[in-house]
Amino acid sequence: MYIDTNTIKDNYIRFWFKFVYPYKSYIESEHIDFVLDKIREGFIINHVAYVYEDICKNQYLPQLIIKNTFGFTPTKIGKWWDRKDTEIDIVATDNSNNIIFGECKYTKKPLDVNVYYDLLEKTKKVNWNKQNRNEYFVFFCINGYTEKMQNLAKQNSNIVLY
C-alpha cells in the first residue's frame, strides 16, 4: 500500500505513515533498535524539515503580514514548483502585482547568501505577473544567518530575515 505522506496535514499521522507503518513488522518482531536507526537516519530531512516549512508558511509568515512587514496583504499563500526539479517553499501574492518568495531552512549552519541567489534564479521560472511585479523575499532559518546574509538584508528593503 502506498500512502502519499505529503498530502497528510496532521504531523503525528504523517510521522506514523513515514516511520512506523513501513516498519510495523520489525516493531512487532521486537527489532526496535533497527527501526529507531531508520527513524534517526531520515527524521530531520524527511519529517522535521517539512514540519518546519509548514510552521513558517502557516504561522511565521502570517505574523509578518499582520505586522505589515511587506506593506501589502497577500490573498494567496502556498508553495510553487515546476514539473522538473524547481521548488519554492513559499509564494504569496495579492490581487495587485506584489509577490513574496520564501525559503525555509532547517539546517545546522546559518543561512548564507547563496540561498538568496538560488531563490532569485528560481523566481525567474515563475510567470505570475512576471513583467510587472514587486518582489519581496523572506527567509526562515532555524540557526540564523551569516554576516553576509544579514548585510545583504540590511542593504535591500525587500529582503526579510525571520
Rank of each mutant, 00 (worst) to 15 (best):
M1C: 04
D4E: 09
T5L: 04
T7L: 15
I13K: 14
I13E: 08
R14E: 06
W16D: 00
F17V: 05
K18R: 13
F19E: 02
Y23N: 15
I27Q: 08
E28M: 12
E28F: 09
E28K: 14
S29E: 09
S29N: 14
H31A: 10
H31S: 13
I32R: 02
F34N: 04
D37K: 14
K38C: 08
I39A: 09
R40W: 03
G42Q: 11
N46L: 04
A49W: 01
A49E: 01
Y50C: 01
V51E: 13
V51H: 09
E53M: 07
D54T: 11
D54R: 14
I55H: 12
I55F: 15
C56K: 06
C56H: 07
Y60D: 04
Y60Q: 10
P62H: 12
Q63I: 05
Q63R: 12
I65R: 06
I65D: 05
N68A: 10
F70D: 08
F72T: 08
F72L: 07
F72H: 04
T75Q: 13
K79R: 15
W81I: 00
D82F: 03
R83Y: 09
T86L: 13
E87P: 06
A92Y: 06
T93R: 14
N95P: 00
N97I: 01
N97G: 06
I99W: 10
I100H: 09
K105L: 09
Y106Q: 03
K108P: 00
K109H: 06
L111K: 04
D112S: 14
T123N: 08
K124T: 00
W128N: 03
W128K: 06
N129W: 01
N129D: 05
K130A: 12
N132Y: 08
E135H: 02
E147A: 12
M149A: 12
Q150F: 02
A153S: 13
N158M: 01
V160S: 12
V160R: 13
